[in-house]
Amino acid sequence: MIKNEIIYGTLFLLISILFFALTFQFPDITIALSPKVFPRFVSSCLFILSLALIFQGIKKQIQEKGELKKLEINKVFIIRFILLFVFAVIYMNILEFLGYVIATPLFIAISLIIFNEKRWYIIVLISILTTLVLYAIFRIVFRVPLPRFIFW
């Protein structure tokens, strides 16, 4: 099992290199502070810190050699996580089309189910009530132009 310090360290190392490389496209502007300076400084620091993190991870890996820990993967959790993410993305995409008042109770109902709420009357009640309260506060009191369907 690779230590997560090594994984994250490598990831951040790559990010820092990417950002540093991108600064070469920036134009040279000489008034005061060139836009290159700040990102370059930050990504260099990130580069060094990521190296340190990887080093830490390698040290840990050597110390714990032999004791192979099995990674506990909670399958149900991963499914829930992905479902919630996917439905959130779907929600955002249908929001403009269906309108806030229709899309939101659907989304709340689905997330209640993902959060393992089993009583159907609670699901119906909470999803409708929450939407109505939020709609009343934001549309009617604060006048936020919420996405709407044809009629409201």
């Binding site: 939101t104 709340i108 997330s111 393992n116 999803s127 929450t130 939407t131």
Partner: peptide, 12 residues
């Protein structure tokens, strides 16, 4: 199970 879906709606 009830609290966090509501919070999620509010955050969105």
């Amino acid at each position: 199970s009830i609290l966090f879906p509501i919070i999620m709606a509010l955050c969105f």
